[in-house]
Computed example of a mutant assay.
Amino acid sequence: MKKEIHVSGMRCSSCEMLVSEALEALEGVQKAQASHQRGVVEVEYDPSKTDDEAMKRAIEGEGFTVTD
């Protein structure tokens, strides 16, 4: 499944990497591609192994805010 999550607080490519790596560390996430210019991260994941709340916690654990 693919999902786009709106994230505020990303300012640079280092921020993108933090968000992407935090999500990719979750079981069930195959790929995460963050864009600070667009303020989103596109995630490919298996919904039987992870959920929106786990992804939100991973992003917010890095100091960013999920806005959707």
Results as ranks from 00 to 15, higher is better:
M1N: 09
M1P: 06
M1Y: 12
M1E: 15
M1T: 11
K2I: 03
K2D: 13
K2G: 04
K2W: 02
K2N: 11
K3W: 09
E4V: 14
E4R: 06
I5F: 00
I5L: 00
H6T: 08
H6I: 04
H6N: 13
V7M: 09
V7I: 13
G9N: 03
C12G: 00
S13T: 14
S13K: 08
S14Q: 11
S14D: 15
S14N: 13
S14T: 09
E16H: 03
E16Q: 09
M17K: 05
M17D: 05
M17Y: 02
L18S: 11
L18R: 11
V19G: 04
V19P: 02
V19N: 07
V19S: 04
V19I: 05
S20H: 08
S20M: 07
S20W: 08
E21R: 03
E21S: 06
A22F: 13
A22H: 11
A22D: 12
A22Q: 09
A22E: 13
L23M: 10
A25W: 11
E27R: 09
G28P: 02
Q30D: 15
Q30T: 10
K31C: 00
A32W: 12
Q33E: 14
Q33V: 13
Q33T: 08
A34K: 01
A34I: 04
S35D: 15
S35E: 15
S35C: 14
H36R: 00
H36C: 04
Q37H: 11
Q37P: 03
Q37Y: 13
R38Y: 11
R38C: 03
R38L: 13
G39V: 13
G39P: 10
V40T: 15
V41H: 01
V41R: 00
V43I: 03
V43F: 04
V43W: 03
E44P: 02
E44Y: 14
E44W: 15
E44G: 06
E44L: 15
Y45G: 10
D46K: 01
D46E: 14
D46C: 07
S48L: 13
S48A: 15
S48K: 08
K49F: 06
D51T: 07
D51Q: 09
D51I: 07
D51S: 10
D52G: 03
D52I: 05
D52H: 07
D52P: 00
E53R: 03
M55C: 05
M55P: 03
M55E: 07
K56V: 09
K56N: 03
A58W: 05
I59E: 14
I59A: 09
I59R: 03
I59M: 12
I59W: 13
G61N: 01
E62K: 13
E62P: 01
G63Q: 05
F64E: 14
T65Q: 14
T65W: 12
D68K: 01
D68L: 08
